[in-house]
Design a protein around this nucleic acid. Structure first.
Lengths: 202, 202
DNA sequence: CCCATAACTGAACATCCGTTCAGATCAAAG
DNA sequence: CTTTGATCTGAACGGATGTTCAGTTATGGG
């Protein structure tokens, strides 16, 4: 957590780069399972195999633990999206967005769950940050829809509402999908893309 | 809460039929705003204007307070749906379902929020009950979709997935709709119906 | 006006909470 | 092998938690 730019000049007795990620992962899993408010620092510590006081080598407080998880998730989402080169044309772009959204979210169910359910447990300042990142992601989709409407390919009454409707529909996949189930991620992508395509079609 | 069938033979000093609903309403509002685990019995009591101990005249414990709110919400949902006479034909039925779902959910945002977010804070037995009620509601929509597919009016790959996708999309309306906003509920219904109709169209 | 009783108070119970910190422990650098 | 400092323990802090209950207050029926 406290890296010093260059290669960190590690000194004696240090393995915080092992424990640090374990703290974050334990917190994520427990927050997703039981909710932020219902999980105690002692439970997180027990999961890591450490006493509660030791957690404070890795986070200033419990709120930062939640916020860092959510900001990390949103950063990953935006970075992964930005890393892809977008296909040409609104229709191909929309399919790309649909498949990306489903794939990304199905790969990290815990982070998705926490990021959608624990917004109200953020301080107002932290909430504003997460809300801004989420807004940037939504704007990405809305731009696609607007371009499609402009080109006469799509027909939606209100691009902002359509954006939120599509994202709600796609994110809903995380509530029922199980990796052991009968459908592969690719099949699920195709099923949802079929519905999205028709829903906004002209 | 403890009614005796007939007209309750109320005796001296009783006004629990005033305080009782106030407890439920305060709990609902606070649970929706801050989450079940983050709200204390003392906060609920303060909202009602009473000491914490008095709440136990109206609920055996905090868990029952949550469960009764959620069961009440689901019962209302199923009862309201059952009270409507269904139009003829899958298309009209689907429109009816869409408009009903949006209207019903926009009328009780707190109950919707609690019922979707606090499932993990139910005991396993209570969870099973709520899950069963939700399943009955979903089956209602799935029957409509299946009938439409059978009649060649709809084209969906998997009626179960389409059911969950449509419900997720529709319920998402509660996250952004504000009564003071520019759109009436009827307008929102029409916008979503447009998308639902096309999404499942043959 | 009295009185049975519903409704509520206020204090107490054991237990948990997030956070702090002095001191023990540990691993690597010299 | 010693030193150095990162890491962790274990106890403590004030305060909050859900729940219980003996005792007080308020209300309407007789």
């Amino acid at each position: 957590m406290f890296s010093y730019g260059y290669v960190m000049a590690r000194t004696a007795g240090s393995h915080s780069d092992i424990t640090g990620p374990r703290v974050a992962q334990a917190a994520l899993q427990l927050f997703a399972r039981h909710g932020y408010a219902a999980v105690s620092m002692r439970q997180i510590a027990a999961e890591v195999g450490v006493q509660a006081g030791a957690l404070y080598n890795y986070t200033p407080d419990k709120q930062s633990l939640l916020f860092d998880l959510m900001r990390g998730h949103m950063d990953e989402l935006l970075a992964a999206r930005a890393a892809l080169l977008q296909p040409d044309g609104p229709l191909a772009r929309l399919e790309d967005f649909t498949r990306f959204h489903i794939r990304f979210h199905l790969e990290r169910p815990d982070a998705v769950f926490v990021s959608y359910m624990e917004l109200r447990n953020l301080t107002p300042a932290n909430f504003a940050v997460i809300e801004g990142l989420r807004r940037r992601y939504e704007d990405d989709l809305e731009a696609i829809l607007r371009a499609g409407v402009g080109a006469g390919l799509f027909d939606v009454t209100d691009t902002k509402i359509a954006t939120l409707a599509v994202i709600a529909m796609l994110t809903g996949v995380t509530t029922w999908y199980r990796a052991e189930g009968r459908l592969s991620v690719a099949q699920v992508e195709t099923i949802y893309w079929d519905m999205v395509r028709k829903a906004v079609a002209a």
